[in-house]
């Protein structure tokens, strides 16, 4: 938070996430969804209340999470392979082992041939794949936080990456907490969707997404039950968005 006037970003956020669950957080911009992720990563300490990971309070940087943000956050002087290896290097995995693992994971997202390329030589979608794979390659990571990871991508790359993410995640037993603005994206990906209110953010409603898995990302809107959940989420959100507009007009 910037120096000067302090502001309450979040209030009374109470959310329990099961191991292996895919949860999306949606809500108006600036409602503190990202702050929730930062707190879980241990990068921001809550002024009040606690956050538990596996029953332990998060007091310092949480190295059992992987973090994928809107920016790729790749080191520009390392190749795709080098960037994926970085996570393993930090955990002290030996050179040969980490090279093999990193390479294997890059191959899973079709980047085998691009392993030796630098980030500026990769497309936006490829960079995003590298930053996702970088979190998955580390076995000690059991929660992956994603803050609007597909926001800057074009509509098609976005769909392709949603599909890849689901396939990478399925069966790994890892937990994903995913912030997005896009209701369709939230429904496509998640088991549960938590809708946030406007500032100060709190959880307004949590809804289960019962659409069967594996899901067809490209035809999700044709799946029976899609319209119902879409309307429900949209109803939860609409009020908050209208409030946001009202307060903008007032200011």
């Amino acid at each position: 938070m910037a120096r000067g006037k302090a502001r309450t970003a979040l209030r009374n956020v109470d959310l329990t996430i099961q191991r292996g669950e895919f949860v999306c957080l949606v809500g108006p911009s600036g409602c503190g969804k990202s702050t929730v992720l930062n707190m879980f990563a241990g990068l921001v300490t809550p002024t009040d209340g606690t956050i538990l990971h596996d029953g332990r309070v998060i007091a310092d940087v949480n190295t059992r999470v992987g973090y994928v943000t809107q920016d790729d956050n790749l080191l520009p002087w390392r190749t795709a392979l080098g960037n994926v290896e970085l996570a393993l290097e930090c955990k002290g995995v030996g050179r040969a082992a980490r090279r093999e693992r990193a390479f294997d994971y890059l191959a899973r997202v079709g980047l085998k041939g691009s392993a030796e390329l630098y980030p500026h030589e990769l497309s936006g979608g490829m960079r995003k794949r590298v930053s996702i794979v970088r979190t998955l390659v580390d076995d000690s990571v059991d929660v992956i936080l994603m803050d609007e990871p597909f926001g800057p991508l074009d509509a098609q790359t976005r769909l392709v990456l949603q599909d890849e993410l689901l396939r990478l995640w399925q069966g790994t037993g890892r937990t994903i907490v995913f912030v997005t603005h896009d209701i369709v994206e939230a429904i496509t990906l998640s088991d549960r969707i938590a809708t946030f209110t406007g500032v100060p953010g709190s959880i307004k409603q949590v809804r289960d997404v019962t659409l069967p898995r594996p899901r067809d990302v490209f035809h999700i809107h044709e799946t029976p039950g899609f319209a119902t959940i879409y309307d429900a989420i949209w109803n939860d959100l609409r009020e908050e968005l209208l409030n946001e507009r009202g307060s903008d007009a007032g200011a």
Partner: peptide, 13 residues
């Protein structure tokens, strides 16, 4: 870049 610092710290550096 502060974001890079945060992401490398989360990796356990």
């Amino acid at each position: 870049n502060r974001d890079l610092v945060a992401s490398v710290r989360v990796m356990g550096a």
